[in-house]
């Protein structure tokens, strides 16, 4: 157990050290949400008054969704960070050492999680200037949900990177899955605006629950079924995807 903790710490520290050398990536990942905040949220102003719109203010509707969106896109691209490490033999060098395999996996995943939490905090701070006023406890829980989403998607992304070892392939696989999941999660516009079929499909999308939960949480409404469902779903998903990544890490022919 002690070795496991030390190993995880060593790998995570190494990953963060490399990241701090090049903090550029943290900010690149912020570009998209900030552009949405500046250029898309104003559009929503006109829609807020439309019949059936669930929230009174655009920021209360859009900012929680934006945080989930950032988690979706940025975590699912974490696999790109290991492609060169796979290529130059660094991962293989790690795998020859007696380092704990779970530590190896957690080191990479936690690095993605930390980056994402920093990005989420920055988005929240910027949003304050756009009239976003979240509940504090709700926000802490929302970050916890974001953490679970980040574990899930970065584990998937790393695993695919290990399996395909190719940037182009990784990008197409990720886009193929993440884009529809994103559009069907009600981040951009309320799902109540969508046709019944789309609403039906959205009900089997775990991110729909995450997005709805994120809105409840930022409003401070914690004891909601949706919130509970979202947490249960993503706890299960993060365990399953972590296990997948561990298996890939153990067996993959790099």
């Amino acid at each position: 157990m002690k070795k496991f903790l030390i190993d995880t710490y060593i790998i995570l520290k190494e990953e963060l050290r490399i990241l701090i050398r090049n903090p550029f990536w943290v900010f690149i990942g912020l570009f998209e949400p900030v552009v949405y905040l500046l250029l898309f949220m104003p559009f929503l102003k006109g829609v807020t008054s439309a019949p059936g719109f669930p929230a009174e203010s655009t920021s209360r509707f859009f900012v929680p969704g934006l945080i989930v969106m950032t988690a979706m896109f940025n975590s699912s691209y974490s696999g790109f960070g290991v492609l060169d490490l796979l290529e130059n033999g660094f991962i293989e060098r790690l795998r020859v050492t007696p380092v704990n395999r779970l530590s190896l996996v957690l080191g990479f995943v936690l690095q993605s999680v930390i980056v994402l939490l920093i990005q989420s905090i920055i988005i929240c701070i910027i949003s304050l200037f756009f009239g976003y006023s979240p509940s504090f406890t709700g926000l802490v829980l929302l970050f916890l949900l974001v953490l679970l989403i980040a574990i899930t998607l970065s584990s998937i992304s790393y695993s695919i990177a290990f399996l395909v070892k190719d940037g182009g392939m990784l990008a197409s696989v990720i886009n193929f899955f993440v884009l529809p999941l994103f559009l069907l999660s009600g981040i951009m516009l309320p799902l109540s605006f969508a046709p019944k079929i789309i609403q039906g499909i959205a009900m089997v999308n775990p991110f729909t629950y995450a997005v709805n939960a994120s809105r409840f949480l930022s409003d401070g409404l914690i004891a909601q079924n949706t919130v509970v469902i979202a947490f249960i779903l993503f706890i299960i998903l993060s365990i399953l995807t972590l296990q997948w990544f561990i298996r890939v890490m153990k067996e993959t022919v790099a």
């Binding site: 070795k3 190993d7 060593i10 190494e14 050290r17 490399i18 050398r21 090049n22 060169d84 490490l85 290529e87 130059n88 033999g89 660094f90 991962i91 293989e92 060098r93 790690l94 050492t97 007696p98 380092v99």
Partner: peptide, 24 residues
């Protein structure tokens, strides 16, 4: 390995220290 496996953004010394840490 044939490819080596140094972390190219780190220094040679940092690579060695990491390796030593991984061996406990």
């Amino acid at each position: 390995s044939q490819k080596g496996g140094l972390e190219l953004r780190s220094t040679g010394r940092e690579n060695l220290i990491l390796q030593a840490r991984l061996y406990g």
